[in-house]
Write a protein that binds this DNA or RNA. Structure first.
Length: 455
RNA sequence: GACCCGUUCGUCUAGCGGUCUAGGACUCCGCCCUUUCACGGCGGCAACACGGGUUCGAGUCCCGUACGGGUCGCCA
C-alpha cells in the first residue's frame, strides 16, 4: 500500500489545452508534489489522423506556463518511456499476446475483442466511493443516438482495430501498468469506463491503481464547456493577462475545497493543502468574474520585481516602454485597480502619453461646470509655484489644497478638473502621485492646453 | 432508452444527527474611509430540489420522485 506515488496526465494532442484538462493535470501534479511522487506526462496520440504536433506544442506550452512541470514525459524522458503512445506499439503487442495466451481475446471482422467476464467490477473511487457494474450485462445494451433506439450489441471490448492500431481503453491500462501509475486522477466522464479498465487489469493479473474521478466543470448555464466558451482555453488566460498562479488557484477551487474560509493560495500552499478527500462530488460551473477576482488578489500580492517582469510584455503592446524609470511607481498605482496584467497599460497610459488624448465626454462634462476656467487658472498658478525639486505627490496635493483655501474654492471641485486636465479622463490612478510622475513641466503643459480647450 | 454519478444562497462552497434562527467567498446594493480614482473596512439581499421514512431530534442517514451531468465508438 505504500508504493511510491506516481500520477499522470495523458492528453490527446488533438486541440488546445482546455481548462478541464488543465485542472486534471493540476490535481495530478498537486497530488504527486504533495506526496513526493512522480508526475508523468503521457501523450495519447494513437489517433494518427487527429493528432498534431502543433496541438502538442500548445498543450506543453500551457502546462509550462502553469508551472506544472513533469518528471517523466516528452522532452525530459524517463525510465518508463517512450511517452508517446504512437511509439509503444511493441509493448501493446506483447500485452495482447498475454491475452491471446490466456484465450481472453478473439478476432471479429478484423478487429480484436476482449472477452468481458460476466461479473461485477467494483471501482473503489477516492471521490465517488464504490461503483459496481456488470459489463456483460451493461455492455449488451447500446443506444443509437440517431434513432434514439436501444440496440443489442456485443459486450466484448474492441481493443485493436483492423488496421492494427489499439483502442484507448487497452493502451490506457497497459501504459498505467507499465508506467507503474499509482493514482489515476481524471474527469468523472471516465467513471463509467473504469469497470472496463478493471476487467483488463484483472486479465493482466495486475492490482489496479487507486482511482479518483473528479467532477466536471460546466458553463455558467450548466452546459458542457466547449472550446468556444470564454475561459475554456488556457492560452487565452496567457493572452488576457492572467497570472498562472491565479489560474491554478482558481482551477483548484473548482472541484476542491480547502474546507475553511481561505481562498487565495500560492502554489506551495495548494500543494500543502490539497487532498483527494476534499475533492467535491458534484459538478461546478465556471465563473469568469470570480476568476478575475482571484487574479486581482494575486496581482496585489506580487513582488515589485515580479510585477514589473510580468507586466513588461503587456506594457510593450500598450505602447509603453517597460524600461522607463517611472514604471515601478506607475505599476504600484496600477496594480490596485487592475484585475488583469492586460489592464495595466490602460490605467497608466495617460502618464506616459505625449500628447495626451482627452476623453471628449469627460472634457464636456467638466467644461459644463460653472467657474471651471477659474479653477484651472488657479491650479496652474498654484502649481507653477511648486519648486521643481519639490515636485512630489505630497507637495502637489498641499499646493492644490492651499490654493483652494486661498481662493475660497472646494477641494473636491478642483480635483475633478485637475484630473481631466492632466490625465484626460474622469477616472484613473491616484492623481497626485500620477502628477508627480508626469512631472511639473508636463502637468503645466497639459493644464494650459486644457485651459484653451475650455475657452 | 439502460446504467452510473450528483443536487446547500445567482455562482464557488462550509456543514460529516443536536453547537444551523445554515457560515465564508464572488457578484449586486448601501454606508464609511478618501476634500480625486481605486483599494480597503462595515453592513444588506440571497440557499438546505420535492415527498416519504428512521430518530427524542435530519441540511446531515435510508427509500422514492424530479432535475442536472456522465457512459453506452473499431474517439480519447
Amino acid at each position: 500500500m505504500s508504493q511510491p506515488v506516481r500520477t499522470r496526465f495523458a492528453p490527446s494532442p488533438t486541440g488546445f489545452l482546455h481548462i478541464g484538462g488543465a485542472r486534471t493535470a493540476l490535481y495530478n501534479w498537486l497530488y504527486a508534489r504533495k506526496h513526493g511522487g512522480v508526475f508523468v506526462l503521457r501523450v495519447e496520440d494513437t489517433d494518427a489522423v487527429r493528432s498534431t504536433g502543433e496541438s502538442l506544442d500548445i498543450i506543453l506550452d500551457g502546462l509550462r506556463w502553469l508551472g506544472l512541470d513533469w518528471d517523466e514525459g516528452p522532452e525530459c524522458g524517463g525510465n518508463h518511456g517512450p511517452y508517446f503512445q504512437s511509439e509503444r506499439g511493441d509493448i501493446y503487442d506483447a500485452y495482447l499476446q498475454k491475452l491471446q495466451a490466456a484465450d481472453l481475446v478473439y478476432e471479429d471482422d478484423g478487429a480484436i475483442r476482449f472477452r468481458v467476464p460476466d461479473k461485477d467490477f467494483t471501482v473503489r473511487d477516492a471521490v465517488c466511493g464504490d461503483v459496481s457494474v456488470n459489463l456483460k450485462v451493461q455492455g449488451a445494451r447500446g443506444f443509437d443516438p440517431e434513432t434514439k433506439q436501444e440496440i443489442e450489441k456485443n459486450p466484448d471490448l474492441v481493443i485493436r482495430r483492423p488496421n492494427g492500431s489499439y483502442i484507448f481503453h487497452f493502451v490506457n491500462v497497459v501504459d498505467d501498468i507499465e508506467m507503474q501509475i499509482s493514482h489515476v486522477i481524471r474527469g468523472e466522464d471516465h467513471l463509467s469506463n473504469t469497470p472496463k479498465h478493471l476487467a483488463l487489469f484483472e486479465a493482466f493479473g495486475v492490482e489496479p491503481p487507486q482511482f479518483a474521478h473528479i467532477p466536471l466543470n460546466l458553463n455558467e448555464d450548466g452546459t458542457k464547456m466547449s472550446k468556444r466558451d470564454r475561459g475554456a482555453l488556457i492560452h487565452e488566460y496567457v493572452e488576457n493577462g492572467f497570472l498562472p498562479e491565479a489560474v491554478n488557484n482558481f482551477m483548484a477551487l473548482l472541484g476542491w475545497s480547502p474546507k475553511d474560509d481561505a481562498e487565495i493560495f500560492s502554489i506551495d500552499e495548494l500543494i500543502e493543502r490539497f487532498s483527494l478527500e476534499a475533492v467535491n462530488k458534484s459538478n461546478s460551473k465556471f465563473t469568469y468574474k470570480k476568476c478575475l477576482w482571484v487574479n486581482a488578489e494575486h496581482l496585489k500580492a506580487l513582488s515589485a520585481a515580479d510585477l514589473r517582469e510580468k507586466a513588461a510584455p503587456f506594457l510593450k503592446t500598450g505602447g509603453i516602454s517597460p524600461d522607463d524609470d517611472r514604471i515601478p511607481a506607475a505599476l504600484e498605482l496600477a496594480r490596485e485597480r487592475a484585475e488583469l496584467l492586460s489592464a495595466i497599460p490602460g490605467v497608466i497610459a495617460p502618464i506616459f502619453a505625449d500628447p495626451l488624448e482627452y476623453d471628449d465626454e469627460a472634457v464636456t462634462k467638466v467644461a459644463a461646470k460653472e467657474g471651471v476656467t477659474e479653477v484651472v487658472d488657479v491650479l496652474i498658478s498654484a502649481l507653477e509655484k511648486v519648486d521643481e525639486t519639490a515636485w512630489k505627490a505630497d507637495s502637489i496635493k498641499s499646493a492644490i489644497h492651499d490654493a483652494a483655501e486661498a481662493n475660497d474654492m472646494k477641494m473636491g471641485a478642483m480635483m475633478q478638473p485637475c484630473r481631466v486636465g492632466t490625465m484626460g479622463s474622469m477616472s484613473g490612478p491616484d492623481l497626485a502621485p500620477a502628477m508627480e510622475l508626469i512631472g511639473k513641466e508636463g502637468v503645466l503643459e497639459r493644464l494650459s492646453e486644457f485651459r484653451t480647450k475650455l475657452s
